[in-house]
Design a protein around this nucleic acid. Sequence first.
DNA 1: ACCGATCTTGACGCGTTCTTCGCGGCCGTA
DNA 2: TACGGCCGCGAAGAACGCGTCAAGATCGGT
Lengths: 224, 224
Amino acid sequence: MTRVLVVDDDPYLLRALRINLTAHGYQVHTATDAAGGLATAGRQPPDLAIVDLGLPDLDGIAVVEGLRGWSRVPIIVLSARDAEAAKVAALDAGADDYVTKPFGMDELLARVRAALRRAAPTPDAPVISTAAFTVDLAAKRVTGPDGEIRLTPTEWHLLEILARHPDKLVAQRQLLREVWGPQYQTETNYLRVHLANLRRKLEPDPARPRYLITEPGLGYRFVP
Amino acid sequence: MTRVLVVDDDPYLLRALRINLTAHGYQVHTATDAAGGLATAGRQPPDLAIVDLGLPDLDGIAVVEGLRGWSRVPIIVLSARDAEAAKVAALDAGADDYVTKPFGMDELLARVRAALRRAAPTPDAPVISTAAFTVDLAAKRVTGPDGEIRLTPTEWHLLEILARHPDKLVAQRQLLREVWGPQYQTETNYLRVHLANLRRKLEPDPARPRYLITEPGLGYRFVP
DNA sequence: ACCGATCTTGACGCGTTCTTCGCGGCCGTA
DNA sequence: TACGGCCGCGAAGAACGCGTCAAGATCGGT
């Protein structure tokens, strides 16, 4: 079962979080201060941590730092509206997301799901092979028949997304959003240029692509 | 250098410990409460921890538990004569040794040596070799054809991270975060400078690196 | 307070990479 | 057949990233 650690000093909020998270199938551990939170995390490493920045020892950031020292567990930070500086510090320290109080329970649950989803795709086969080349996602390396193939950052980023969803159609918007950001979602010509460069480096016959397939008007597909 | 973390709320004792330990060649980090201690341990994992059970948040045991969650670092607990129960609890939680206050500094130092000696046999395969040099991760030493190569702390830290992931591409952000901290994630020029220095010390032809490879825009790769 | 080692910071040249644009081809539709 | 949408292609200038050097700034030890 997914284990969630909640560190908060407000007993009412703690109770509300416990009830809601439990109701959604999470196993909840709680602590009311930084020391207790870190100790609990040590005893029972959680799959996700929710940390209030306004702890009695004024040091929710210590929890983030303490966790980040040994764990990549997703951390969601709770903060009051005016604690901007602390929030930024917490994110710098390695927190993954933040929720400003007061917040709706549905929003928090959504962020919990998002954080877990983001963290989930870790343990996978990080090597995808085709007849023409091999993609090693962990080492960020592409090997062709003549040895290593050097990709530019953008090319690698595109290939990585496509390779993580083999045989699946990836929408143009999604590619543009993940590589260039939300405000570039219509610049489809970027995709054309960089896909062409990728094909030139990877495809045996770049003019007639076999692995990086265009689905006109929709997106692209990686077929191993 | 051997790193010792001391968690104690008594400033006099803290000072005495720092002076004595430093004098005996240990690198000392200190904290005055459980949260700070765990956070410090996360930032700079110690080789040994000395923890006073009588902390202001009454929870030295939390430090022991928090450390034991992710580390096998030897832990020596300090306790007042009458705190038998807490002492037992600390040992149950995973502490390695205890010293009853008041104690002689020589005794403590002896126990420190003993604890480190006991922990020493931690032999996995912490040695990575190339044709040009050898990296001993445990001993924190680099040996070249002409004997030992002296590295600065930053250089060693960088090389250590790269050597722990041979053949893997390590992202710039990750290097910056692990060596300098989360708020330096964009200072890529640090990497350029220190990598250049590393190459000057390690590479046969620093202008054409063979072991410390740059992947432009992405990060660096150590190829043994 | 001084000194050496180390780290930070800024500047420069150079090669690479990205962006941007125009052109031509393919295809479905009017 | 004409037309518009979409794609592949090539090329040019701009922007970026890297390596390098050298000058402060910082730190620890004497």
